[in-house]
């Protein structure tokens, strides 16, 4: 059935030298000059855009972010922090961890063996591969080192971003990070804030099925 369907559909699409009476014209696309912001402006814009979408943004030094993370976590009651031990910051995180903090929970088994735990943990931390200043969004490329659910099932998602990886636009990120030369990940993502909905009377509320909170550490 499907083999036939394929052939039939394609032949129908091909059979038609266009009827109707004109050609199907493809207009030229205008070239649009993208944003060109300095690093500082990109950080500022990203922060502003993310905050508008109710994310919390902390611009910190590369050396100081762990202390700030710990301080933030100490102030909360969380049952654990999910992370990938092979994440870029994995070893540093483990090395800096202390008793009085929520326990670090490494994501090392396939989801089938830890589904329950993943759906019940309060917080998760991932790296961001980059970010987009124009619209305000993080770029995540989940991988074996940092699986997909870390940024999805916990109520609090913490993302760690190198300020140097903030691009002006989405298009610029695709170009400069050479997405086409890499093998695209199983699931690449843009994330612009905690999950939200406006499905009831267009009233915007945050925290639906995905994380209720997004905290972004921008390391400058």
């Amino acid at each position: 059935m499907t083999a036939n369907a394929r052939a039939n559909i394609l032949s129908r699409l091909r059979a038609t030298t266009i009827q109707g009476q004109g050609p199907f014209i493809v207009p030229d696309a205008p070239i649009i000059a993208g944003l060109e912001l300095s690093l500082e402006e990109r950080i500022g814009r990203l922060q502003r855009m993310l905050e508008t979408m109710h994310a919390e943004v902390r611009v910190v030094s590369a050396g100081g972010w762990l202390e700030e993370l710990k301080a933030m976590l100490r102030a909360r009651t969380l049952n654990g922090l999910l992370y990938g031990p092979a994440a870029p910051f994995g070893p540093a995180l483990e090395g800096a961890w202390e008793e009085d903090l929520p326990p670090l929970v490494p994501y090392i088994e396939p989801v089938e063996q830890c589904r329950e735990r993943l759906f019940n943990i309060d917080a998760g931390i991932t790296s961001a591969r980059g970010a987009i200043a124009e619209t305000g969004a993080l770029i995540l490329w989940p991988s074996a080192a940092e699986p997909r659910l870390i940024s999805l099932t916990p109520g609090l998602h913490i993302a760690v971003l190198d300020a140097g990886m903030i691009f002006n636009t989405f298009a610029e990120a695709i170009d400069q990070q050479h997405w086409l030369r890499h093998r695209m990940p199983a699931n690449a993502l843009l994330i612009s804030g905690p999950s939200k909905t406006a499905d009831i009377e267009l009233t915007l509320t945050f925290g639906v099925h995905g994380p209720k909170e997004l905290v972004v550490f921008i390391l400058s």
């Binding site: 855009m49 979408m53 843009l190 994330i191 612009s192 905690p194 995905g210």
Partner: peptide, 9 residues
Amino acid sequence: PITTYFNMI
């Protein structure tokens, strides 16, 4: 300007 999630599978 963008949705919360843009998923590329």
